Amino acid sequence: MKETFLRFERRATGFAMVVACAMMVIAASLGAFQIVTRFVLEQPAEWTEILIRMSLIWMVFLGIPTAFRQGAMVSVDVLYRWSPPKMRRVLDWVVCLAALALIAVIIWWGWDYAQRGSVQSMAGLEEVSMFWAYLAMPVGGLFCVIGIIGNLLDPVRMELETAQ
């Protein structure tokens, strides 16, 4: 059961990271396009601004699950170093529960915000609802839950290795 979940988690977190990277490529490409249209052609494309922002928001919320999975989000380095091995496992659970509580709030209010924003349209893209931009919070949060549980089952503490 544990190995099955960890395989699922690797695929889900990997997928989220691939999409986050794609959002970064989209944001960079649109930024370059915006520079060309604004300063070279002197015909600014206003629609690129909102798409850049939206892709950056999606990039962040889909990149966070990888950070959670690597144990790099909530740093309790000193407590881990000073604690005996049994206490470290208790700390793993405390960090996991605190992170899940935070992500639960993000999912709950993110979904509420997305629903409320569904009546708004994007500036420059009047036919597209803001729902799609706000949806990044609950979707990213769901991927975070998978990464947090994966880190609890198979702990990785990247911040301890890179903090030196």
Rank of each mutant, 00 (worst) to 15 (best):
Y134R: 10
S118N: 12
F143M: 15
I103R: 02
N151R: 06
I57N: 09
S75L: 07
V94L: 08
Q164P: 06
G110V: 02
A136F: 01
L6G: 06
A114I: 02
L41F: 04
W47I: 11
R89P: 01
A27D: 10
G71S: 02
L6E: 13
Y80L: 03
I26M: 13
A101Q: 06
A133D: 04
V74F: 01
S55D: 14
G71R: 00
T66A: 08
W93L: 09
A16S: 14
L102K: 00
E3H: 06
A99S: 08
G71I: 00
E49Y: 04
I57T: 08
R157H: 02
V105M: 03
Y134N: 12
D112T: 05
T13Y: 02
M158L: 10
Q70S: 10
V119S: 12
L135H: 05
A136N: 05
G71H: 00
L153F: 01
Q120F: 07
G150S: 09
V36H: 13
W132V: 09
E46W: 08
V145F: 03
A114P: 00
L51N: 15
V119K: 14
K2P: 01
R10V: 02
A28G: 13
S118C: 12
L100D: 09
I149P: 00
A114T: 03
W58P: 01
M87V: 03
E161Y: 01
V94E: 04
S29W: 11
A123P: 10
R10Y: 10
A16N: 07
A22I: 13
R38A: 10
G124F: 08
L160E: 06
G63D: 00
Q70W: 05
M130R: 13
R7W: 10
W82C: 15
W47D: 11
W109K: 12
M17V: 08
G124I: 03
T13W: 03
A22V: 12
S83Q: 07
A16Y: 03
V74G: 02
F8E: 15
A16P: 08
I35Q: 06
G147T: 04
L51R: 13
L6T: 14
A133W: 01
S75Q: 07
L125Y: 13
T13E: 11
